[in-house]
Write a protein that binds this DNA or RNA. Structure first.
Lengths: 152, 152
DNA sequence: CTAACTGCAAACCTTTTGCATTGAC
DNA sequence: GTCAATGCAAAAGGTTTGCAGTTAG
């Protein structure tokens, strides 16, 4: 959701030789304008608002395609709201998702974790990380009771 | 999968007041003996080998129960093998899952990440982490070509 | 022109649920 | 004995697929 990709996903898709259809333009618009994480159904509903003829299967197919190409990430946000999957345009900077298990709020604090962690893992294990997903469940500031706040 | 929990899950369940049925004993056995991460269907198949009368719904219900009680974790391992969910007994020490996007191998290097990270997140954001999931996709040592190995 | 993409509808797979029965405590 | 847990079967999600028609390059 950090939307500040200077080049639109559309450009990347074009550059990779994908055909640019009206439906794909619509879908990308929906993803780029999202103010929160959307599951496939929500993406579909928003896309249909812009283009009532767009079909659910197209949403799934395109989302899968972009996922396979590494252009969007699929999240499950600790399954706090059921087994839905959420999609976001692959951010250039790795970030954590903090999911409140009480109210469902999702925060995404920034940080230099990714490069550090990637280097560390590579060094320690020989594994070469390409993508990462990190989600923490817990209580957001607003959902912590006084007692919660005390037991650090 | 780090199986070395000195006290069996069964004891914890008993201590928390859950009824100990034959089916639950079977399911825990399956989880504790698993040599890799199992999805619900695989858990079901292995449980049925030990007790042919056990029902799928029981597996799902119990897995959900244990998940809600924080005794097992649900993983998706970067969706490398489709949208399956995998289950593991909640390890006492937080660990990362490294999932090879080529061969599907899963590594779990140890490390003191969890306490450090938990403290850092709490300090930086006010969020109080209770559970974490961290998965990295990439290439395991065996799947890296010489060129891969070079471009660190 | 042709391969890629889409809409449609049906199939698929996984998970959940209501209900009567069984069994743990 | 009582309430929780189970088996069963049906329903509910959510996602995928085959096919014929459409369209981008």
């Amino acid at each position: 959701m950090p939307v500040e990709s200077r080049t639109s996903l559309l450009d990347v898709m074009r550059a990779r030789g994908l055909r640019m259809t009206e439906q794909r333009r619509t879908l990308v618009e929906v993803l780029e304008c999202a103010e929160k994480h959307l599951d496939a159904d929500e993406v579909f509903r928003r896309a249909r608002e812009r283009d009532p003829s767009i079909h659910r299967a197209t949403i799934y197919r395109t989302l899968n395609l972009l996922k396979k190409m590494g252009l969007v990430d699929e999240l499950d946000l600790m399954h706090v709201a059921g087994d839905r999957h959420y999609y976001e345009i692959r951010p250039s900077v790795f970030h954590i998702h903090l999911v409140c298990t009480r109210c469902g709020a999702v925060e995404e604090p920034g940080g230099p974790f990714w490069e550090e962690l990637k280097a560390k893992v590579r060094r320690d294990t020989g594994f070469r990380p390409e993508a990462a997903r990190m989600e923490m469940g817990g209580l957001c500031r607003d959902c912590q009771s006084p007692e919660d706040a005390i037991r650090a």
